[in-house]
């Protein structure tokens, strides 16, 4: 379970998060939406301890993230899969090395087993025969899939997706959405998806949190979001409804 209480974060004079309270229960799939720069990704990075809050608490399975010792934090992160907006594949490594890096670093040295896991995880995301390719030779959608395979290799309990469809064409975006959906069903992970793509929200999320000016403006189901009479929310969903 993830519990966030009165989380505040500023960059210079810019208050990005101004007191966020969220509880995410195990097995939930929650989408965090909002305009660009509203603090969605910042919130996600606080949950895995990549950023330190100015005040407030973030706990994951009872572990206080800002106060956690480095070893505890790293052990926890191995239970969290993170798909980055840019996929963040390591350019100097092959696809295979990217996918198994976490396992290798965790002490797995059996080359046959590692190749088997890499092949299996890449198969899960619909990729085959690219184990020895370099990330630079892959398309944007393929990079996201490899990023997803890398996150899945650690058999995570939580999956965090940072803008999974941003920068992709509609067809590839649909494929990524369905991939996330099928993985969620098969792996029973707790999912947190940061996006401003309402198609993704409607397909995948069971709960939506709308961030606005550093505060939670809406917390409900995707259906409730679409039917909201609030002007601010209506403005955000208008483009999607049209």
């Amino acid at each position: 379970m993830i519990e966030i209480t009165d989380l505040r974060k500023s960059f210079d004079s810019n208050d990005v998060l101004r007191g966020i309270d969220i509880t995410i229960h195990d097995g939930e799939t929650v989408a965090i939406i909002g305009e660009s720069g509203c603090g969605k990704s910042v919130l996600l990075k606080h949950i895995i301890g990549l950023m330190h809050p100015d005040s407030g608490t973030v706990t994951v399975d009872g572990i206080s993230i800002p106060d956690a010792k480095e070893e505890v934090l790293y052990a926890l992160r191995r239970r969290i899969g993170f798909l980055f907006q840019s996929a963040a594949l390591f350019d100097s490594m092959t696809v295979y090395e990217n996918v198994v890096l976490g396992l290798w670093e965790a002490g797995e040295r059996d080359e046959d087993k590692l190749r088997e896991i890499a092949t299996e995880k890449l198969g899960l995301v619909g990729l085959r025969g690219i184990l020895d390719s370099k990330p630079s030779s892959l398309s944007g959608g393929m990079k996201k899939r490899v990023g997803l395979a890398r996150a899945l290799a650690m058999q995570p309990q939580y999956m965090f997706y940072d803008e999974p469809t941003t920068g992709l064409d509609p067809v590839t975006s649909d494929q990524i959405d369905f991939l996330i959906l099928s993985l969620t069903e098969r792996l029973s992970t707790t999912n947190l998806i940061v996006t401003h793509d309402l198609f993704t929200v409607n397909r995948i999320a069971k709960r939506v949190i709308y961030l606005n000016k550093g505060l939670i403006f809406f917390d409900g189901t995707p259906q409730e979001l679409m039917q909201s009479s609030d002007r601010q929310v209506m403005q955000f969903v208008e483009r999607f409804v049209r």
């Binding site: 990075k45 990549l50 191995r78 980055f84 976490g102 650690m154």
Partner: peptide, 22 residues
């Protein structure tokens, strides 16, 4: 620097790997 601006350092951290050690 390239790893930092393309989130590869964050990716290392997210895999439980210390960038200082690695």
């Amino acid at each position: 620097g390239t790893m930092q601006v393309t989130e590869q350092i964050d990716a290392l951290e997210s895999l439980g790997i210390s960038p200082v050690r690695y």
